[in-house]
């Protein structure tokens, strides 16, 4: 059913929008054997590397039955780890949201020298190994660090305590919100804000009534990604936590301890909660992306 005359370029929908393969022009269609082979190779690769690891988490979590699973996640140390993870997220995510909005507002709405350098520096934590992200805080706040002697003299604990965990998590998740908002706000431009200001709105009114409604989906997306990483961060937190059971163990660290004690079912029970978080993140991400392509 391929059209005899190709439609003019301007009206041609992009590839993804095409309704059926049979309507693709011959020139861009692969032979059937290639389609089957490539689809098979892709799905096999993804099955081995993505589906199996995900399935094994839940299979192992319930390998000793539902009662064991419930006991493992209700045990006091597990609950303490869950509480610490939630506390960390409750501090880190809002802090990075405020930063992300401030950075995007400055970068997208104004012109100033050094803007591209600033954008690069915001992305910097993505290039740093999680282990090194933890290490640098030890160098600043640890017993042998810059502020170590002063902190010890004033009896303030940062490393091997909750503040260190919060700081290391903030470092690792630093760019997530900002890098979602900057391109979005740049694309939206400043026309609507100008109109609001011209009509007499002050800065905060402009932000709350004009900018925020425009960026809410991008902001939500950034928060979801930031939250997933903050809850799951392992390397950076591992360096600064001190691994004190019931006190400075986050959920991923608790998983590690149980696993190293050969409590495999218990480790996977707690891990399955984190895997559920990952699945929820992917579902929400797909919905937000779907909404964005719809409204675009």
């Amino acid at each position: 059913m391929a059209p005899a005359v190709p439609a003019p370029h301007a009206t041609r929908p992009p590839f993804g929008a095409r309704p059926a393969r049979s309507e693709l022009p011959r020139a861009t269609r692969d032979p059937a054997w290639a389609r089957w082979a490539l689809t098979g190779a892709a799905l096999a690769f993804l099955a081995f590397f993505l589906v199996l690891p995900l399935v094994v988490v839940f299979a192992q979590a319930f390998s000793k039955g539902g009662a064991y699973f419930l006991a493992a996640i209700r045990e006091p140390d597990a609950l303490a780890a869950i509480r610490l993870t939630l506390l960390t997220v409750a501090i880190v995510v809002p802090a990075n949201v405020v930063f992300g909005i401030a950075a995007a507002w400055a970068i997208a709405k104004f012109r100033f020298p050094g803007k591209s350098l600033l954008t690069t520096l915001i992305d910097l934590p993505f290039a740093v190994s999680p282990v090194i992200s933890g290490l640098v805080y030890v160098l600043v706040f640890g017993a042998q660090g810059w502020l170590g002697p002063w902190l010890i003299a004033h009896n303030i604990r940062i490393i091997f305590a909750v503040p260190g965990i919060v700081l290391a998590t903030a470092f690792v998740t630093f760019p997530f919100v900002a890098r979602e908002l900057i391109p979005l706000m740049q694309a939206q431009g400043t026309d609507e804000e100008y109109s609001a200001v011209t009509l007499g709105a002050n800065g905060w009114q402009t932000f709350w009534r004009v900018t925020l409604p425009n960026i809410r989906w991008g902001l939500f997306y950034g928060v979801i990604l930031c939250n997933a990483r903050a809850m799951g961060e392992f390397g950076a937190v591992s360096v600064v936590s001190g691994h004190i059971r019931g006190e400075t163990n986050t959920m991923p660290l608790h998983v590690e301890i149980l696993y190293n004690e050969y409590n495999i079912a218990g480790a996977f029970a707690v891990a399955s909660l984190l895997a559920l978080l990952a699945i929820a993140t992917l579902v929400i991400k797909s919905i937000v992306e779907w909404r964005q392509t719809r409204t675009a």
């Binding site: 690891p53 995900l54 094994v56 988490v57 192992q60 999680p130 997933a228 809850m231 799951g232 961060e233 392992f234 390397g235 959920m251 991923p252 660290l253 998983v255 590690e256 696993y259 480790a267 996977f268 891990a271 984190l274 895997a275 978080l277 990952a278 699945i279 993140t281 992917l282 991400k285």
Partner: peptide
């Protein structure tokens, strides 16, 4: 999205 420790033990 999957925490690295979970991926590691899986």
């Amino acid at each position: 999205a999957l925490p690295t420790a979970v991926a590691g033990i899986a």
